[in-house]
Design a protein around this nucleic acid. Structure first.
Lengths: 164, 164
DNA sequence: AGCATTATCTTAGCATACTAAGAAAAGGCA
DNA sequence: TGCCTTTTCTTAGTATGCTAAGATAATGCT
């Protein structure tokens, strides 16, 4: 008999539905994987995607500003951008007005990729919310944002108390 | 002037609110970190927590069954359990009726930790949903579960088509 | 019984992303 | 101006969790 994992793949998920953190993990992971399946063929990994997506909106930012917008550590950004540079998707040069900063620019190749790859996010999102009414999607986004605000405030108060 | 990250920490999050995958990432990460801050003092890391929590519900499961319930790869489980064993929180022995399986049991020490650490999940959850009505919490859980079902079905159909 | 297939666990290698600590540049102030 | 602090980026080390490939045990088929 096949393992129970094949019998009803969704069952395993329902069993842990009482933890919002866990639900968030599953959703984040599925999003990454589904997106990755589409973008990998173009040499864009899951880790690179996050940065590319932000740069498609606006490039010429410093690494620190990029990190801030994506809520990533500077060190993480350094490593990810090194990979993107090696793939010829970005180039970087020191800001002449503040030579501590490194500004990040897309290459023409990366710009061309945008039209191919940007729709992928939309596709995954559409798929994830299949059967949702527009109101439900809006409600979900709103609830998630409220959670994030709560969590951010809590983290900030931890910081203030010097706990971290 | 201080970096803008300190000016309004929540702003950075709102800027990317249009991606459900990204929102899920932020929530998952905040949950992990807030929990970690409480449990680390007891020698329980974020990665161990997931497994401990499941084992507090029911131990004596095989590693594969544990993996299935937590939606983890078997290899991931192997490594995590090795850590828990080294910490003296679990012990494992081969199932006599099927010697391919390794059954996982909590140690008395791990059982004692339950009463101290289990409330932590609840605390983080309460904090995350501050200002929510019970109906909103229920609605959120329900919406998240529906997304997961959608995503699982999609992944399953990818598997069927042999794409992965 | 014997052999091929399947299931479970492990190992190895890699990707992502964290923290801590250090280097280089800029800013602030005596 | 010179020194101390802050900011930005980098490096090193670690944790989490993935895939691929292998070892061992059980199962199924002839």
């Amino acid at each position: 008999m096949p393992a129970s994992s094949k019998a009803d793949p969704a069952r395993a998920y329902w069993a842990i539905e009482d933890s919002l953190g866990h639900l968030a993990r599953l959703i984040f992971r599925s999003f990454s994987m589904l997106r990755d399946a589409q973008t990998r063929a173009h040499g864009v990994s899951s880790g690179h995607w996050t940065f590319l997506r932000q740069l498609w909106r606006e490039d010429g930012l410093s690494q620190h500003e990029l990190s801030r917008r994506l809520v990533m550590q500077d060190a993480t950004t350094t490593v990810a951008l090194r990979g993107l540079e090696k793939q010829g998707l970005i180039h970087r040069h020191v800001n002449r007005r503040d030579r501590r900063e490194t500004l990040v620019y897309l290459t023409p190749r990366a710009r061309e990729l945008a039209s191919t790859l940007l729709p992928v996010t939309g596709d995954v999102q559409t798929l994830a919310t299949r059967g949702f009414t527009p109101d439900e999607v809006r409600a979900l986004r709103s609830l998630l944002c409220r959670i994030i605000v709560n969590l951010v405030e809590e983290e900030a108060s931890h910081l203030d108390r010097g706990q971290w």
